[in-house]
Design a protein around this nucleic acid. Structure first.
Length: 282
DNA sequence: CGATGCCCCTGAGAGC
DNA sequence: TGCTCTCAGGGGCATC
């Protein structure tokens, strides 16, 4: 579920509750998510102080004062809660202590942090901080799309020689890190590029447009607190609002929001739905 | 190399 | 109410 803007929203929401805080009473409720939890996970977290909370791609990295970093990937349904509330989140929090709450802890200020993940596609690890960027999860990642390392020259080079369609290529975290299915669709629409175009065939001008589109859509989504995909009858805050700004995602059959008589269509690429306007994305 | 299908897992919503 | 089917923001693997 969560792409870069949602993960960043979670990071910002957790920061006031966790930065500088010591972790206590860590409880792990099952031995694994997607992968087994680290050895003696609870014991290693307990007593550690969180120095800073960082996001890299779709990962959260909590740097601890003992030389290790607590790394979390939210998968599709991973959610943190703070005292049962969403951390400024994009979605209704999972119920505290619910059957999918796999980890909980308290801070030295007495706040309760929970992590739940119904589908268990998420995962966690403790990695020596000095080796973070050499770890297999991070070593091959492409640049942060909101950083200086992501630009037309870099993307053009990453696309060079690739005959794969540009939509699937954008989802390749080695090309650019943090873009997922929603924002790939939205960025391609904004750049008016067909998702079927082979990445390597895009002109420099179109790659430049794509870079700007990716940056803009991610920045706007972060500003809106991410995207909330389902509506909850009793949702009382904590939701993102960017879903109201989708041009194409989830809008199959609706008129093209651009200056075009076309209709938004859906088809499947790399096993995921692509939404686009065949009328103006060429 | 690239596209496709399937896998991990659970839940929500649609349609009957 | 309940059944079946499809789909879901993640990523990885095997196969053709």
């Amino acid at each position: 579920m969560p792409e870069l803007p949602e993960v960043e929203t979670v990071r910002r929401g957790l920061e006031p509750a966790l930065a500088g805080r010591r972790l206590q009473h860590v409880r792990v409720n099952r031995p694994d998510l997607r992968f087994p939890f680290p050895e003696r996970f609870a014991e290693r977290l307990e007593g550690a102080r969180v120095e800073r909370l960082e996001r890299r791609a779709k990962y959260l990295r909590f740097h601890l004062d003992d030389g290790e970093t607590w790394v979390t990937h939210l998968g599709m349904t991973g959610r943190f809660t703070i005292d049962g509330q969403a951390p400024g989140e994009f979605e209704e929090p999972a119920p505290t202590g619910g059957k999918h709450e796999h980890l909980s802890l308290t801070t030295d200020q007495g706040r309760r942090i929970g992590f739940s993940d119904a589908r268990r596609f998420g995962y966690m690890a403790l990695i020596p901080t000095a080796e973070l960027d050499e770890h297999p999860w991070f070593r091959g990642l492409g640049p942060e799309p909101l950083g200086n390392g992501f630009n037309a020259a870099q993307l053009k080079a990453a696309f060079r020689g690739r005959r794969q369609n540009v939509k699937a290529t954008l989802l390749d975290q080695r090309v650019v890190a943090g873009v997922g299915n929603i924002y790939a669709c939205e960025a391609l629409f904004r750049a008016r590029i067909s998702p079927r175009t082979p990445a390597g065939k895009l002109s420099t001008a179109r790659v430049e447009r794509l870079v700007q589109a990716v940056r803009q859509v991610l920045l706007e989504a972060i500003e809106a607190g991410g995207s909330t995909l389902r509506d909850f009858a009793n949702a009382d805050g904590g939701q993102g609002y960017f879903q109201h700004a989708f041009d194409v995602y989830g809008r199959e059959g609706k008129p093209c929001p651009g200056d075009c008589p076309g209709v938004v269509r859906r088809f499947v690429q790399a096993g995921r739905s692509t939404f686009w306007c065949p009328g103006c994305q060429t």
